[in-house]
Design a protein around this nucleic acid. Sequence first.
DNA 1: ATACGTAATATCCAGAGGAG
DNA 2: CTCCTCTGGATATTACGTAT
Length: 358
Amino acid sequence: MMADKNRRDQLRALFGTVETIPTPEHNPMEPDATAQHSASVEPLKPRAASGAVKAMGLSLSGISREIEDARRLKESFEGSERVVELDPALVESSFIEDRLSYESGLDESFEELVESIRLNGQQVPILVRPHPDKQGSYQTAYGHRRLRAAARVGKSVQAIVRDLTDMQLVLAQGKENTERRDLSFIERAFFARNLVERGFERGLVQDALSLDKAEMSRFLQVASAVPAPIVRAIGPAPKIGRPRWVRLAELLKSESARQAASDEVRLDAFKAADSNARFNRIFESLLKQEPVAVPAQQASRTLVQEERDVKASAVARLRADKGRPVLTFTEYAPSGFAEFVASELDQLLSRFEKQKQS
DNA sequence: ATACGTAATATCCAGAGGAG
DNA sequence: CTCCTCTGGATATTACGTAT
C-alpha cells in the first residue's frame, strides 16, 4: 500500500507533465500542428496521384501519427529542453531491447518512415540521454525507428537530450511504446521480461507498460516459455494476440515440439512468409502433429508424473479442488475419450491396486 | 460498397495457490 | 496470517470474411 503510493509519486515526479496531457487521439489539432500537417502532405500529392492510392493512405496515417507525437512531445518538453541535431552514429539504442529485430523488407511501415523523412525531414525528435559510459555518445529512450531511418537517409537526427537514470529511461521507453500501441503482444512480453530480468520491480514495470498484474504474469510466462530464437525467427507478428501465443507456449513445452519448431524455421517457405504467417506455420504444424505424436496413454501417464512439464500436449489435467483431485479433459482429448475413460474406471482401479501391492 | 455475423483480441475481475 | 503470483473466465472491442 505504502509502496504503491511511493511508486505512484515517483512516477508522477518523473512524468507528471506527460501524464496530465489529455489523450492525443481525440483532441482537435492545434493551429501550428495543422500548418505542419499541410506542409508535410503537400509534396506527397503528386506522387500519390501517379502511384498507389493505398500507399498514400498509409503515408498519411503515418504522418498524422507523427504530428500527434510532435504535439505531445512539444507540450511535455515545452521550454525545458531544446531539440539538437546529432550524428546517428553517436546514438546507441537503449540497453533494453523492445522491438524485435527488423529484417529487410519485412517492415513496410519502416520503409514509409524512411521515405517520409527523406521527403519531409524528421518531424518528431527522439529522446536520448548522454551515454553513461562513452563520452560524447548517447542512448535512446525512444525513437529507435526514427533514428534508424535518419541514419538510412544519411541525415542527422533531431533529438532531445535529457539526463535520465536507468529507471527513467526504461519508464520513458515503456510509456512511449504503450501510448503508441504499436508493439505487438510478443514484443511487449519480451520487453516486460527484459525489464524484470534487469531487476526492475514488477509493479514498476506494470505501471510503465500499463499492465494488469494478471497480464504481467502471462507476459512473463509466454516470454520465458517460447525460446527466444523462435520468437526472433517469427518476428513481431502484430496480428497474433495473447491467446494464441499462450497456446503456442504450451505446445512448445515438449522437447519434440521445440525441435519441430526449429526445423520449421529453417524452411525457405517459412522465411518467405510474413511475420504473422510465420507464426501460423509453426502454430498449425504443432497443433496438427501434437495429439498424434503423443499418444493419449503416454500423455496422461506423463501428466501424473510430471504434471507441470507436459501440460502442452496433455489430454487431461489433474488439479486439486478443495483438497479433492479433479481431472479435466482438454481439447487434445479425442471426442469420446472422456466417456471411454469413465467406462474403463473399474479396470484402471484394479490395475492401480495391483501396482500398489507389488 | 455496405451490413451482418463470426472469430480473435484486449482488458479487467475474482479468486486459487504458494511463499514467507 | 499477508503478500504476491497465477489461472480462469466474462465482457467489450476490433478485424475479417461473406452475402446482399
